[in-house]
C-alpha cells in the first residue's frame, strides 16, 4: 500500500468529495420536487391520470441508471436540433447531464415510495378530516402529505444512500466526483488498490453520516410512535 500517493492527491479527492455531495444534494432536491406531483398523480383513482406517471416510474425503475445517464449524456448529442439550440448549453456539460439523469431517476424511486405511502394512509385519518369539513386540498396539505413524509422516511433514507452510490457513475462521463478522482489517480499512477479504496472510504463515511442523520430524523418525526418513557 502506497499511502503517499493518496496524500499527494488529497486535494483532488476533496474536490471530488465536494462534487459528489453537491451533485447528490442537487439531484435529491430536484428529484423530490418532481416526485411529489408524480406520486399524487400516480395514486389517483382515475386510470387516465395515473397511467403516465406510472409508466414513468416503471421505465426509470426498470432500467439501469447507467443506461439512463448515457441516453442523456451521449444520446442528446445525436440530435442536430439539440446540438444547435440553447439546449446544448445544458447537455453539452457533463455536470448538467448527470444532474438531469440522477434527478429523473430518483424522482421515479421517490415517487414510488410516496405513492405507496399515500395509498396506505389510514383511512380513518382522512375520514376524520372530512368530518371536520376540510376541502380535498386541505386534506392533502394538512393530513395526507405530512403523514406520508413521516412514514416514508426510512424508505427515503435508503433511496438517499442509493443515490449517493449511483452518483459514482458520474465519474464515467468525465466528471471529477469521488470516483472520477480515484480513476484519475489510478490512470496516472497505476495504483488501483490505493486509489479506489480511498474513494471507498470516503463513500463509506458519507453513508454512515446519512444513516446517522436519518436515525436522528426518525427519532424526531416518529416521536409519537415511541413507547412512552417513564
Amino acid at each position: 500500500m502506497d499511502v503517499q500517493v493518496i496524500i499527494d492527491n488529497l486535494p483532488l479527492y476533496l474536490q471530488g468529495l465536494r462534487t459528489t455531495i453537491v451533485l447528490v444534494f442537487a439531484s435529491l432536491v430536484v428529484g423530490l420536487l418532481l416526485a411529489i406531483p408524480i406520486a399524487l398523480l400516480a395514486s389517483s383513482k382515475s386510470k387516465w391520470i395515473s397511467a403516465l406517471p406510472k409508466a414513468y416510474i416503471y421505465f426509470f425503475r426498470g432500467t439501469p441508471l447507467l443506461v439512463q445517464m448515457f441516453m442523456i449524456y451521449h444520446g442528446m448529442g445525436q440530435f442536430e436540433a439539440v446540438r444547435e439550440s440553447f439546449l446544448w448549453v445544458i447537455f453539452q456539460q457533463a455536470w448538467t447531464c448527470a444532474l438531469v439523469a440522477f434527478a429523473l431517476n430518483t424522482a421515479a424511486y421517490t415517487g414510488e415510495i410516496l405513492r405507496g405511502t399515500i395509498e396506505q394512509t389510514p383511512y380513518g385519518e382522512v375520514e376524520a378530516a372530512k368530518s371536520c369539513g376540510m376541502s380535498n386540498a386541505q386534506i392533502y396539505r394538512r393530513i395526507i402529505l405530512p403523514s406520508t413524509f413521516r412514514r416514508a422516511l426510512p424508505a427515503y433514507g435508503n433511496e438517499v444512500i442509493f443515490m449517493l452510490h449511483g452518483s459514482s457513475l458520474a465519474g464515467l462521463i468525465t466528471i471529477v466526483d469521488l470516483f472520477g478522482a480515484a480513476k484519475i489517480v489510478n490512470a496516472r499512477n497505476f495504483v488501483p488498490f490505493e486509489s479506489f479504496i480511498a474513494a471507498g472510504i470516503f463513500y463509506l463515511a458519507i453513508t454512515f453520516m446519512i444513516v446517522w442523520g436519518f436515525k436522528k430524523a426518525e427519532h424526531h418525526w416518529h416521536a409519537y410512535l415511541r413507547p412512552r418513557e417513564s
Binding site: 452518483s167 465519474g171 470516483f179 489510478n186 471507498g200 454512515f208
Partner: peptide, 15 residues
Amino acid sequence: RGIPDLVLMTLIFFG
C-alpha cells in the same frame, strides 16, 4: 451497504 458497486467492481477488476 457503504461502498458503491462501481467502486467495488473497478477495485476487484484492476486490483
